[in-house]
Design a binder for these strands. Sequence first.
DNA 1: CTACATTCACAAAACATCCGTTATGTGAAT
DNA 2: ATTCACATAACGGATGTTTTGTGAATGTAG
Lengths: 196, 196
Amino acid sequence: MPRHKGDHDARRRDVSAAVWRVLAAHGFGGLTLRAVATEMGATTGLLTHYFPSKKDLVAHALTLLDERRAGRPDRPAPDGLGALRAMLLDILPSTPRAAADNRIWVGSWDAALADPDLAAGHAARYAGSRERIRQHVRTAQSLGELPPADPDDVAAAVQSFALGLIVQALFAPDEFPPERQTRLLDGYLATLAGDR
Amino acid sequence: MPRHKGDHDARRRDVSAAVWRVLAAHGFGGLTLRAVATEMGATTGLLTHYFPSKKDLVAHALTLLDERRAGRPDRPAPDGLGALRAMLLDILPSTPRAAADNRIWVGSWDAALADPDLAAGHAARYAGSRERIRQHVRTAQSLGELPPADPDDVAAAVQSFALGLIVQALFAPDEFPPERQTRLLDGYLATLAGDR
DNA sequence: CTACATTCACAAAACATCCGTTATGTGAAT
DNA sequence: ATTCACATAACGGATGTTTTGTGAATGTAG
């Protein structure tokens, strides 16, 4: 029975990873302290030792999940449209881990829409994502890769397309394998660019 | 205290309406028999009188919600691209009721992704929606309103755009008022058509 | 270096609450 | 007198939280 010393934050990360696994498998409706503890091979005593409440436990797990994505290095890609494409490809559920991450976020929407604080947090996260998209759109426009149009609207449209594709891919992974996700994204970007 | 006789199905519809109201306000995480009963001004005894279990109660409420949408008459619109636009405008959360309906569906995704049976049902529903979109796309293509392209891919792309726009509008209704939803949709359809 | 006290990192168990379900009661209509 | 349409109340189980116990590591005094 391993003893862990000192590294408090590392242990909280271990717990959060177990939370991710339970969420990806059973959703927020199946997230119980006992399920997380079992997933870790521990007891609820461990959880309460590191988190004052379940709400804090979940909040920390989601914060870490978002920070992990934000901290991931961008895959090398040319600026403008190429960077936008790379950013979206990193988000789409083309790998098991990306699918699990997205499944967690999609699952979080029910509780988030019921709680004003959580909803505000989600709204801020998606606004930030749109802002990053907007930067790429402006660069692409200045490079002549995209026709001039309101960058805010284009960013919102791109985000819409990506989010909806994520949802569909989660429900019908067989109909939306990675290649088709890429093809659909490229098709969308091509229509945005005006290519036929 | 009103007594209701005979009209069994009508009463089940009343219960389902109360379920919708609780779901729209508190999500699936806040859906309890006691909450539904209170919403109706009744007790859980009424609920168990009309439904054998909570699962059946929820399933019936969602079935009715979907049937209500399917049974709504199409708003008058020309065939092809116009019909596609009308169909999507009817789905987007541009009215309080459409927003409440969509909020329920989005909230249902967490439980659906955790249960293979529910996931299959959702996948079938969205496949059906894509099929309706595909018909409009083919008509629009034959009318020359849309360029030739794989109708399945176009339908999946359109569905993606609509779903993602719904999610964003639910989290940031102030940033996505009905006019902007319409503008974004029209902008997307225009890029699909190749208009600049 | 050793004995002991303290702290740390949990396990174990108890607790109160809430939930879905079931059992029972009740008044009106038939 | 029976049935219907509920209300009322009870029940067992699950859940988040709190309390208590415990063994190892760590510091400390002699």
